[in-house]
């Protein structure tokens, strides 16, 4: 049972902060830094951050749940890839085990799995993953009416006014990404990575995987490549970024540009009052692949901001500046001008 989400003593204006726990150590760090809720995944293809060195085995999840619950935090388990036909058992087991080990909710994307969870693990809350790309009240209500989902993580395709409007037409809690990596495409509906590498978020839980990345010195600078294709090129002294496919430099219409998106990350810290006004229940921080120091810094900054908001205080400008890391930031699809 999600104690945070259902705690009647919390004011209606309070926002639940949902934080990444890529490893057991990151889980403890996030909880200590003030996360209301953490999310994690099992160490296999059942979750969309299936990276080497990340995630939890069953015992680690049991311990992580105990630690979080002792400190008043909830644990959500992401089981948000799409199982291939004929091999559903690992996903069914993941749902069964998340429930058995005391997690507070499972985050699911596949329609068949949501139905399985409703029928076979009815006591664990069901959240709809961003990977399901449910962008409309009608789509969300389909999952609510048929499978009793309690919450939806919204795809990053809607503006804040659109989210406010959406919240007027569904009883389902909404959770939005507020910080970290940013998909430009509708999540869960992108096969760009598998087109180039054979591995995709939907099938294997990876995007632009490191196994297919190469850096090559060329006459024109250092080229970052994915699956043999140049995704970007950097002049001497320019910091070389990771070749995430949709954040590369390409030529179209006789012009070289970051056609899909600049190598930016999302940061809505300054916009939290507007986010709260849009009627969302929870704020999600991306970054299960990030280290403990990063998790601690981001979670603390957002927790301070959420608490300040709850008390009607101004947000701390210094905390915001401290988060930016010198990288480019965006409010992404939440602002109309981005589209």
């Amino acid at each position: 049972m999600s104690r945070v989400a259902r705690d009647p003593s919390r004011p209606v204006t309070s926002l639940e902060l949902v934080c990444p726990a890529g490893t057991p150590a990151a889980l403890r760090t996030a909880v200590d830094a003030g996360a209301h809720t953490v999310y994690c995944g099992f160490r296999d293809e059942t979750n969309a951050r299936n990276f080497p060195g990340l995630n939890f085995n069953r015992e680690e999840l049991r311990d992580g749940v105990a630690y979080a619950h002792d400190h008043g935090a909830d644990v959500l388990v992401a089981i948000n890839t799409f199982p291939a036909a004929g091999n559903l058992d690992p996903w069914y087991r993941a749902i069964d085990d998340a429930a058995r080990l005391g997690a507070d909710a499972v985050i699911l994307a596949d329609i068949g799995l949501v139905e399985y969870a409703k029928d076979n693990a009815p006591n664990i809350r069901r959240h709809l993953s961003v990977q399901a790309a449910a962008s409309t009240p009608e789509g969300i209500n389909y999952y609510a009416n048929n499978f009793g989902i309690a919450r939806v993580v919204l795809p990053r395709v809607l503006t804040l006014p659109e989210i406010k409007e959406l919240n007027r037409h569904t009883e389902v809690e909404t959770e939005v990404f507020v910080f970290g990596g940013l998909c430009v495409m509708a999540e869960g509906r992108c096969s760009l990575s598998s087109y180039v590498t054979g591995k995709s978020p939907n099938k294997t839980g990876v995007c632009s995987p490191a196994s297919h990345v190469a850096y090559e010195e060329t006459g024109a600078g250092l080229a970052s490549k994915l699956g043999g294709f140049t995704i970007n090129r950097f002049a001497q002294g320019e910091p070389a970024g990771y070749p995430t496919l949709c954040k590369g430099r390409f030529a179209a219409n006789d012009k070289v540009s970051y056609l899909f998106e600049e190598p930016v990350s999302l940061n809505l810290l300054e916009m939290l009052p507007e986010v709260a006004d849009a009627g969302v229940t929870a704020l999600k921080i991306e970054g299960r692949q990030r280290g403990k120091a990063y998790v601690e810094k981001v979670v603390k900054a957002f927790r301070r901001a959420v608490d300040a908001l709850e008390k009607g205080q101004q947000l701390d400008a210094a905390a915001i500046a401290d988060l930016t890391e010198g990288g480019q930031e965006t409010a992404g699809a939440y602002r109309k001008a981005w589209h």
Binding site: R189, L259, E261
Partner: peptide
């Protein structure tokens, strides 16, 4: 392969 809220055709122009 992908669909987005953003229009890349418009962006390229």
């Amino acid at each position: 392969l992908a669909i987005a809220a953003r229009c890349y055709h418009a962006r390229a122009y």
